[in-house]
Design a protein around this nucleic acid. Structure first.
Length: 463
RNA sequence: GCUCCGGUGGUGUAGCCCGGCCAAUCAUGAGGGACUCUCGAUUCCUCGACCCGGGUUCAAAUCCCGGCCGGAGCACCA
C-alpha cells in the first residue's frame, strides 16, 4: 500500500484518510506501507520544503510510520531510463504540437504528425535533456489510441520541460515526468499490489495501463473513493489556505481553525480517534459530507475518562458574598476526573469570579450554587453583591444553577484559542501543572493547555 | 457535450459481488427522562432509511432494463 501526496502544503484531514486507510490495510494484511512524495512539478504545484518533514511527523503521529519513504524528484533518472525504453519501442514519441493543436487532434481522434515520423526520437529526447528546447516546445507522449472513446486517454503527456528550480533537488533537472508517468513506474518498482486513492485518479489508471501493457507488467488492484467534505471546514484547498495565511487571516498552518493535521494535533486530538473516524467512513465511491461531531464523539470516548477537570471563568465578573466571611475561607475539594484520580483543592473566599453568561441570567433573590462550595442569593446586581445561603446543595434548582467559580487567589489569566472566537478569562491555578495535556474546563469544553507565559494559553479541542 | 461512476434514516456507514436468516448494522444526531453538585459533560429510553417505475423469481436493498438525481475526469496539476 502507499500514500502519495504532493507536499505543496501540510497534511490535512483529506490526507489523513489516505494515510490511515492505506496504512490500516497494510497492517491488517501484514503488508508494507510506503509514503511517496509525488513532487515532480516545481511550478504549478510547487512543493513546500518544510512539508516533507511535516508529512513524516504526521504519519508517525497517526501511528502510520511508513516502511519506506520515496522522493520522486530524487529518482528522476529512473524515469528517464524507462521512457528511453518506450521511445526505443516506439511506444512513446516527442511531440512538437502546441497545446491547442494537440487538443484539436485529440478531440477529433486523429493522430498528430509527429506520432509516427520521429525516427530520431531518442536524439530529440537527448536534446531535450541537453536543454536545446524551450519550455512548451516539445513534450514526450505515450502512444495509446487516438480513437479511444474517452478523449482523456488519448496520447497523454509523460514528460515536459520546466525551467524552474525545485525546492528539493534544485536545478538538477529541467525535464520532469508527469504524475501519471512517475506514479506508474514507481508503483511497479515498489511492488505495490493495491492502490486506494481518490476517484479523480480513475482516468490515471486507464492511462497508466498502457505503460504496464508495453512493459508486460501487472497493474495493481485499485479502489477509488469519493471526496470528503467536512461541514465545519467546507472546501478549503491548500492554495486557499496559503493565501489566507499570507493575508494574516490565520496565524499559521497550525491555526486551530484549520483542517490541517498539525492544527488537530495542537488541539489535542488523539490519533486513535482520527483513525477510527476515517475507518468508519469506509472506502465507498460516493462523495461523503460528514460533520466534525463524529470525530468529537470518537475523541471524547478516549479523553473523557482521563481528562482532568478544572474551572475556567470566561468573561469574568467579580462578585462579593456577604455574611459568613470567615467561614468562606476554607478549602474546597473537587473531583479531578471521572476516573477517580483524586481531588484538587481550591481555597474559598468571599470574593469570587463567575462567568458573565451565568451572572446575567440570575434574577434578584434567586439562589444559585457555587459548585462544591456554597449557595448564594443575588441581592444587588449593579454592585455584584450576593448573600450567603447555606452550605448544602438542597434548595438549589438543579442544572444550570450549579456554576463554576474562582477566587482571586486561584485565578490565572487565561486565553483559549477557539474556533469562532477566542475566550479570555481566568483558569484555575491547578491547571498550570497540566501543560501539554487535554483537560476539560467544566461547563465549557475540552481544551489542550498549551503554554504559560504571561498568561495561560489553551487551545479549544471540542465540547 | 464526451467518457466513467454512484444513489440505504438528518449525517456517515454495514449489507449488494454469492437473492431468502434484512420489519435492515453500527455510530453520530434529534426528542424525552435521570443526575445531593459539569443540563456545554455523563447516563438511559425513544425516533428515524433501502431514489422512482417496470422486469426476472416461490422470494429482490441485493439481479436486469428505463427514468430521475448526484459526482468524477476530459491540463505540458497532483
Amino acid at each position: 500500500m502507499r500514500f502519495a501526496p504532493n507536499p505543496n502544503g501540510p497534511a490535512t484531514m483529506g490526507s489523513a484518510r489516505g494515510i490511515i486507510v492505506n496504512s490500516e490495510y497494510a497492517k491488517m494484511y501484514d503488508g508494507r506501507f510506503i509514503l511517496r512524495f509525488d513532487d515532480t512539478d516545481p511550478r504549478t504545484k510547487r512543493p513546500m520544503l518544510e512539508a516533507y518533514d511535516w508529512y513524516l511527523e504526521d504519519c508517525e503521529w497517526l501511528d502510520a510510520k511508513p516502511h519506506e519513504v520515496i522522493y520522486a524528484s530524487r529518482r528522476i533518472p529512473v524515469y528517464y531510463e524507462h521512457i528511453e525504453k518506450l521511445l526505443e519501442m516506439k511506444k512513446a514519441y516527442p511531440c512538437f504540437c502546441s497545446r491547442e493543436e494537440f487538443r484539436r487532434y485529440r478531440s477529433e481522434g486523429i493522430e498528430c504528425p509527429h506520432r509516427n515520423t520521429s525516427e530520431d526520437a531518442l536524439e530529440i529526447w537527448q536534446k531535450m535533456l541537453d536543454g536545446a528546447y524551450k519550455e512548451g516546445e516539445v513534450v514526450i507522449r505515450i502512444k495509446t489510441d487516438m480513437k479511444h472513446r474517452d478523449p482523456a486517454i488519448r496520447d497523454w503527456v509523460a514528460f515536459r520541460i520546466i525551467y524552474e528550480s525545485h525546492p528539493l533537488v534544485g536545478d538538477a533537472y529541467h525535464v520532469y515526468p508527469t504524475l501519471d508517468f512517475e506514479s506508474a513506474i514507481e508503483d511497479h518498482i515498489n511492488g505495490i499490489t493495491h492502490i486506494i486513492r481518490g476517484k479523480d485518479l480513475i482516468d490515471s489508471e486507464r492511462r497508466q495501463r498502457y505503460i504496464y501493457e508495453y512493459f508486460g507488467w501487472e497493474y495493481p488492484i485499485t479502489k477509488h473513493w469519493g471526496r470528503v467534505s467536512i461541514h465545519e471546514f467546507g472546501r478549503l484547498s491548500t492554495s486557499t489556505i496559503r493565501k489566507a495565511i499570507e493575508a494574516g487571516e490565520f496565524t499559521g498552518w497550525d491555526d486551530p481553525r484549520l483542517p490541517t493535521l498539525r492544527a488537530l494535533r495542537r488541539r489535542g486530538f488523539k490519533p486513535e480517534a482520527i483513525r477510527k473516524f476515517f475507518i468508519s467512513l469506509g472506502v465507498g465511491e460516493n462523495d461523503v459530507s460528514v460533520s466534525m461531531k463524529n470525530l468529537y464523539a470518537e475523541n471524547r470516548k478516549i479523553i473523557d475518562p482521563i481528562a482532568n477537570r478544572y474551572f475556567f471563568v470566561w468573561d469574568p465578573v467579580k462578585i462579593r458574598i456577604e455574611g459568613e466571611a470567615e467561614e468562606l475561607e476554607k478549602e474546597v475539594r473537587l473531583p479531578l476526573n471521572p476516573g477517580g484520580a483524586g481531588f484538587r483543592v481550591i481555597r474559598g473566599s468571599n470574593e469570587v469570579y463567575i462567568s458573565r453568561d451565568d451572572f446575567e441570567r440570575f434574577n434578584k433573590g434567586e439562589i444559585v450554587r457555587l459548585k462544591e462550595f456554597c449557595n448564594i442569593r443575588l441581592e444587588d446586581r449593579e454592585k455584584g453583591i450576593f448573600s450567603f445561603a447555606g452550605w448544602k446543595p438542597e434548595g438549589v434548582k438543579k442544572g444550570k444553577n450549579i456554576i463554576h467559580w474562582l477566587p482571586e487567589s486561584e485565578a490565572v489569566p487565561c486565553t483559549v484559542l477557539g474556533i469562532e472566537k477566542n475566550y479570555r478569562g481566568f483558569a484555575e491555578s491547578n491547571a498550570v501543572k497540566d501543560i501539554g495535556k487535554v483537560v476539560q474546563f467544566e461547563r465549557f469544553a475540552f481544551c489542550r493547555i498549551e503554554s504559560l507565559n504571561r498568561e495561560l494559553r489553551a487551545v479549544y479541542t471540542h465540547p
